[in-house]
Design a protein around this nucleic acid. Sequence first.
DNA 1: ATTAGCACTCAAGCCATTCGAGTGCTAAAA
DNA 2: TTTTAGCACTCGAATGGCTTGAGTGCTAAT
Lengths: 361, 361
Amino acid sequence: MRTLSPIEQEERKRRLLQAVIHQFIKTGKPVGSAFIAGGRALDLSPATIRNVMGELEREGYLTHPHTSAGRVPTDKAYRFYVDSLVDLQRLAIKEEERIRQEHESKIREIEELMQSTSKTLSVLSNYTGFVTAPGIDQSRLQHMELIPLDERRLLAVMVSDTGVVKHRQVIFDGRYPRELLEPLERTLNERLRGHPFSRVRESLLDHIEAIHKRQMDMLEFARHVTEEAFAPGDVGEIYLEGTGNILSLPEFSGQDDLRQLVHLLDERRALGDLIREDLDLPGSAVRFPAVRVKIGAENRSPDLKNVSLISSCYTIGNRQVGVLGIIGPKRMEYSRMMNLVNQMAQAVTSALNRMVGGPNE
Amino acid sequence: MRTLSPIEQEERKRRLLQAVIHQFIKTGKPVGSAFIAGGRALDLSPATIRNVMGELEREGYLTHPHTSAGRVPTDKAYRFYVDSLVDLQRLAIKEEERIRQEHESKIREIEELMQSTSKTLSVLSNYTGFVTAPGIDQSRLQHMELIPLDERRLLAVMVSDTGVVKHRQVIFDGRYPRELLEPLERTLNERLRGHPFSRVRESLLDHIEAIHKRQMDMLEFARHVTEEAFAPGDVGEIYLEGTGNILSLPEFSGQDDLRQLVHLLDERRALGDLIREDLDLPGSAVRFPAVRVKIGAENRSPDLKNVSLISSCYTIGNRQVGVLGIIGPKRMEYSRMMNLVNQMAQAVTSALNRMVGGPNE
DNA sequence: ATTAGCACTCAAGCCATTCGAGTGCTAAAA
DNA sequence: TTTTAGCACTCGAATGGCTTGAGTGCTAAT
């Protein structure tokens, strides 16, 4: 038998690990040495394979559920697997068409876009799809309008350059000066257009004294409207679809973890925060422009320790305004899913930019 | 032994049935004859109780999971139980306070109200709580505003008398006549105020010819805006909370039914339709003003065949504008839950009327 | 009409057993 | 020196028998 160089040995180990992971992803059952030997990836006897598997186990890539079961990949193994994916381009072309067809139609409003996107992600992946709506924090005020409701309340409607419309009631203790409505509206629009939402309130309140010293009424009026209309509070919504798909996964029949997970999915707010956290962080996977993969314990929340999360950002101009992706079991077809998420991110980006009138940074 | 009159017999049977149901609701386990005999509801031997139980089974009120297990109530039994509930007033007082506290705070916008309501329902019941937002169909247009976005698009913002704000983009193939914006806005507001949303579109399109014969531009402009802004399509939202609670119920460990159920809860749209269907139907339970109880198969959807649904309407003026309630297992504490739902319906009604400025029919 | 008594049923829990998939080690083969 | 065959061993899962006990239904006595 020819002696192998250390490098060849390493290579062989890698291939073996990949084979194990691949197989486990397909079947979800622990992989035994005999099976791998039967395949044509490696031409070795089960015994040898066992030896190598033993090494891989000592290095932390595989585990045993119990003494005499096959090997199961650890998070570390998945990490390795994802990092070394190369066969993406081939899949990309075939699937691209399908994604477009599923998604392209009848999208005119942001909300439709979001819904359609999470739905598409869920249907094509068979897992849970999510999108965070363009956060108000990432966008700038384009226009605002004040609509009188009655003598004590008015409605502030704010349109952002990302196409999101927000409205909020402004309630006064007494009557508000109706005749000042229009001047205020004009002033606000002049002053605030193009300001990022996140800072509009502070900057305006700071400078408000300068607006119209001559009229105390106006001052107080403006202050109250600004304060209320731009009160911080709501982060963008999150659209989730296919929560139920998680239930069908065999690995979650042990109910305890499942319950926690479903609970998290139920608490949309918490999940949204969790996902948004990633928005500006650099991705862990490098191959794709901006597709990120978080495996099990790599996720911040312990409730996500049994799943993987594949996500990507979509942009307006070149601002990242939202995140989309899927939540699935650790053993998923990463390459296909990463491609899917990537495609969707591009699709949403382009749809969005078309909607708000092209990249106008 | 004294002979019982047929009427006394019936009465005894009723009491027995109630005892069985009550017990089953408490424990969730089949109830045996011995247990009932041990309690102080009836002073009979297990044997007699078995006989009566046998009758009740033949009449369809009880079943056997298998030959030698205790009895389990059928849907029909629950129906009987719910219809004969009388001990509600007592509970009402104690719990009222708790509900108010949980719910009363910081509610100013409709959306907050909805969220807080479904949350409260879920927390207090430990099941799944839901509210349908005031449907646009039940409400009337109070005011609308047209906000220019760019030269091809404008935003129609519509405020209903139920306090709901809706907005929609109106897109034109070419430019729209900007100078007609204000006149159109004025006309629309004059013509449409107070019209029910459900008919605003048709009635306006019918009469549109009469508006401004003199100006073709205006005509076309108005037609397009109306058509788009009031296009039918979205029914009110549904707020769901506590979906996860369903998972914790022991009766749903048999996963198959569960999966269907979770799937339904996931499809908010479908669920919303289902719930709204009931809006105008007369209730089955008579004791409460408008608390309805649907048990298992009484529900329209087969996915709900293993749960019960307790709901009530909330109103503005005296229009029923939305539904709220809880979804729980068949064996729930109906009296407490019906009370809860009833309280919440009243709370929401009063909050809502306060918000839109009192019942102004 | 009620009840005590008894035979019967059936699910559930509890072994003990078997089976087989898979391992780890050792010694032989290449 | 590396690979492989062989073998003993381990452990989970499936199987089947056995027991237990809760609960019934019937019959005969009260």
